[in-house]
Design a protein around this nucleic acid. Structure first.
Lengths: 148, 148
DNA sequence: ATTTATGCAAAACTTTTGCATGGGA
DNA sequence: TCCCATGCAAAAGTTTTGCATAAAT
């Protein structure tokens, strides 16, 4: 029974292969770990989780893989709050959307963004080819509005 | 003649004051420098420019001001390319939009995003109050498409 | 076989902190 | 005057690099 995680992993492995990169143990492990962590993760989340799976994988390789996945557009570093630590978010189809409470950093994911028309316009206007996007709303969630 | 930069500086100074923060030399200098650098700048851009204006301002104060401005929603750290160095972008009215070429990092700014309907829907759906947003398109620009 | 990627360990940066002093309100 | 913010310098992290070795294709 091919679960979602496995399907997703295989899909991304294919992308690496097709881009001409070797499917090494370190890379596959990092990819697997990121998928396991869900949509959002920091570099230390990944370092920690990778170390838990296989201690022998070096930190440098984790960072190198994170770079590679970013270059391929599979993940994208973003800032979800005031802190200086970036969070990597999955960009399953080249895009990602969420709302962040600027007070408590809670994240609300959503799917529809209705940006395809705008993307089309921008492609014409700037003579470019758009490959994806990140949309981040900043908000105050109910808890944070009420509490004080 | 009150030029745009000065007006903008005064406006942001008011925001600091109204939020109860002192208008110190370091803070005003950082704000001024950021406005002078245009929409996008990295922390080292700011450190460098501040040092050029007044050597006696400490690095720590620059970082503290950057944090403060981020908390107030005046600027926002983002990643514009594969590099790990964040760029701060101005969020003049709580929002910012741009297109980034994922190959050469060229930035195209644009104004209209037509997201107010979506924002409204999300406020209802999640029971939150949206205060701003960041929209970032990833693209390949004409130069990068042609060259290779 | 070849070439690419890895792990290691050190180096290079960037950002944060603690504390006595100085400067706004 | 009072308290907040500063500058300094050191500490704490994080990310990158160089190189010999190992592992994918």
């Amino acid at each position: 029974m091919a679960d979602k995680h496995t399907v997703s992993l295989d899909y991304h492995k294919d992308r690496l292969r097709q881009a001409g990169y070797k499917l090494t143990h370190a890379r596959v492990t990092v990819l697997d770990v990121i998928l396991g962590l869900g949509g959002h993760c920091t570099s230390s989340d990944v370092l920690e989780a990778v170390a838990a799976v296989d201690e022998s994988i070096g930190r440098a390789s984790v960072f190198r893989t994170l770079d590679l996945l970013t270059q391929l557009g599979i993940i994208r570093p973003t800032y979800v709050d005031t802190s200086m630590t970036p969070q990597y978010v999955m960009m399953p189809d080249g895009h990602h959307h969420h709302v962040i409470c600027t007070n408590c950093s809670q994240v609300f994911e959503f799917e529809d963004c209705g940006l395809s028309d705008l993307a089309q316009q921008l492609e014409n206007k700037f003579n470019i080819e758009i490959t994806g996007h990140l949309l981040e709303f900043y908000a105050t969630c109910k808890n944070c509005t009420v509490e004080e």
